[in-house]
Simulated scan of single mutants.
Amino acid sequence: MQIKDKVVIITGGASGIGAALARRLVLEGAQVVIGDVDKKSGQDLVTELNQNNKIKAIFVFCDVTNFDNLRQLFDTAQNTFGGIDVVCNNAGILPIEFYDQTDNWVKTIDVNLNAVIKGTQLGIEFLKKRGGGVIINTASVAGFYPWKLFPVYCSTKYGVIGFTQSLRKLNNTDKIRVNAIAPGFVNTNMVKNVMSTVAEGVERLDYAPIDEVVNAFITIIQDDKLVGDSIIILKDIPSQIVSKSFL
Rank of each mutant, 00 (worst) to 15 (best):
V7C: 06
V7M: 07
V8S: 03
V8M: 04
I9R: 06
I9S: 11
I9H: 14
I9T: 10
I9C: 13
I10G: 01
I10L: 10
T11M: 13
G12V: 02
G12Y: 00
G12A: 07
G12C: 04
G12M: 04
G13S: 07
G13A: 13
G13C: 11
G13Y: 02
G13N: 10
G13L: 05
A14C: 03
A14R: 01
S15E: 11
S15H: 10
S15C: 12
G16S: 09
G16H: 02
G16K: 07
G18A: 08
G18W: 03
A19V: 05
A19H: 00
A20H: 13
L21T: 15
L21E: 08
A22T: 05
A22G: 13
A22Y: 10
A22P: 11
R23K: 15
R23D: 08
R24A: 09
R24P: 10
R24K: 15
L25R: 02
L25W: 02
L25M: 14
L25I: 09
L27C: 14
E28M: 09
E28N: 11
G29K: 01
G29A: 00
G29M: 01
A30S: 14
Q31D: 00
Q31A: 02
Q31V: 01
V32A: 08
V32F: 04
V32L: 08
V33F: 04
V33W: 01
V33R: 08
V33L: 04
V33A: 07
V33C: 04
V33P: 13
V33Q: 04
I34V: 14
I34G: 00
I34W: 01
G35C: 06
G35E: 07
G35R: 00
D36I: 09
D36C: 08
D36G: 06
V37M: 13
V37Q: 11
V37R: 10
D38S: 02
K39D: 15
K39F: 08
K40Y: 06
K40W: 02
K40R: 11
K40Q: 15
S41I: 05
S41Q: 13
Q43L: 14
Q43E: 15
D44E: 15
L45F: 00
V46L: 10
V46Y: 01
V46C: 03
V46W: 01
V46F: 01
T47F: 12
E48N: 07
E48A: 03
E48K: 05
L49I: 05
L49P: 07
L49T: 09
N50D: 11
N50G: 08
N50C: 05
N50S: 12
Q51G: 15
Q51M: 13
N53Q: 13
N53K: 12
K54G: 07
K54P: 05
K54W: 06
K54M: 12
K54N: 12
I55G: 00
I55C: 05
I55H: 03
K56H: 01
K56C: 01
A57F: 00
A57P: 03
A57C: 03
I58G: 14
I58E: 12
I58D: 11
I58H: 14
I58Q: 06
F59L: 10
F59G: 03
F59E: 09
V60A: 04
V60H: 02
F61H: 10
D63A: 12
V64R: 03
V64C: 14
V64K: 04
V64D: 02
T65F: 12
T65G: 11
